[in-house]
Design a protein around this nucleic acid. Sequence first.
RNA 1: GGCCUGAUGGCAGAAUGGUGAUGCAACGGACUGCAAAUCCGUGAAUGUGGGUUCGAUUCCCGCUCAGGCCUCCA
Length: 477
Amino acid sequence: MTELAFHNSATRRREIFVPIDAQHVRLYVCGPTVYDLAHLGNARPVVVFDVLTRLLRRRFPRVTYVRNITDVDDKINARSRESGEPIGAITARTTADFHRDMEALGCLPPDEEPRATDNIAPMVEMIEKLIANGNAYAAEGHVLFSVPSYADYGKLSGRTPDEMLAGARVDVAPYKRDPGDFVLWKPSDDGMPGWDSPWGRGRPGWHIECSAMSWRYLGAEFDIHGGGHDLIFPHHENELAQSACAFPGSRFARYWLHNGMLLVDGEKMSKSVGNFLTVRDILGRGAWAGEAFRLLLLKTHYRAAIDYTVERLDEAHTELDDFYAVLARDLPEPDADDALVAEMAEWALEPLHDDLNTALAIARLRDLRTLENVATVGGSDTAVLHRIGKAWEPESGQAAAALRQAAAVLGLLGSDPRTWRQGGQSDEVAAIEAAIAARLAARAAKNWAEADRIRGELSAQGIVLEDTAGATSWRRV
RNA sequence: GGCCUGAUGGCAGAAUGGUGAUGCAACGGACUGCAAAUCCGUGAAUGUGGGUUCGAUUCCCGCUCAGGCCUCCA
């Protein structure tokens, strides 16, 4: 089997993927802070690591995918103060919205989705270990991680503490021993969520939750840690420092994978800048929008930046129409163990093994689409076969089956093709089909004027007809 | 200011030390009663200046431009 390789952010190199336990691959991805609807940029890592997980699942006997929910955070507190809505209501509602949106993007739920507030105990336990190991100290109700106590600090993000200070113009809290020290635990006043701890009533810092939850669900050392590129510093650097120091000798995550940013007008989409579009916003464009956005994301390599435009969303929509046109045909269904189907699907997916090259995999999906069109509609496949260097002779239905199988690993083309093309069930269907039958009769009588009149009438309703030998199908535009 | 990425046809976007995929758009042809769908084909690209090499878009250095991080961030 093709070997798997990923670009490891920690080493900045492509590395062959060798899991710690070949029977059980474990990965952790940073999930959302639930204070507001997910925007398009938030969706990218979810889609990217959904594909990664699907790929891993077909290659390894067991995969555990953990993605947290951050439900204790000062942004949540602030939102509650502004709106008056209780914190628990905000986090519950936003979590449900997140689930709904990600499902609409074709993402499967992770195996574990721990909430920070359910994991305060392991956080406290880790902080105690860090204090005991001499890597953290309590001061004025806070507990801080001592950056100078960890010699490798900065290695992940490729910077030295000195460099970071050079450009930083942040006020340093007086209780910090070193300007780079960061908070593990901070005090909460009565109006804020808080938990009793050895250092008084308080709440966790941001980074410790991921360290604690990955430890609890995956162990001190696991295979893959994913997240947005902007999390490398400080979040992942700090996570790594905490975990490596709490569990001396452990490497924490073996492979760090970071997705590139989603831009709009050439600038990172972000809530603080305010240039964001929510997933909900684009889902409102139509039933097709979730999958189209997913395709848009996967057409670009996960590490590259994507500049979002509505034109690109429409382009992805057009492409999906073409794919579904193939799948909507009544095609012979190959046997489940059809060797050519398996070979074609495997060929299409092969690029995923090279650092998740979804763009190339999708290009191969298009080749399978062409092969199916040739096999069923007619034409010549010599050009495409020559280009891809294959001597396949697919029969009607085989390339479509391979297309469906391969696309499933990308989380694409899973909708019912007829529903995709014709919209949900509607009471117009009978009338449309009656009109089509009338037109077929007119055509049989060579009454072209009448046939064209009927077609024009349907066209005015947004119905496009496609004539094939002996039959006419329709779709909405 | 420091550190890091990146720059490929009109747009999007792969790949590669030796004649640069694919998609969208455009144009032409086949098919069709005409269309649509489909197939075939055409035009069109490696930011810039050096270096290494028989050969560089690919490797190295400078420059320009863009983006990211250094502060909450996916």
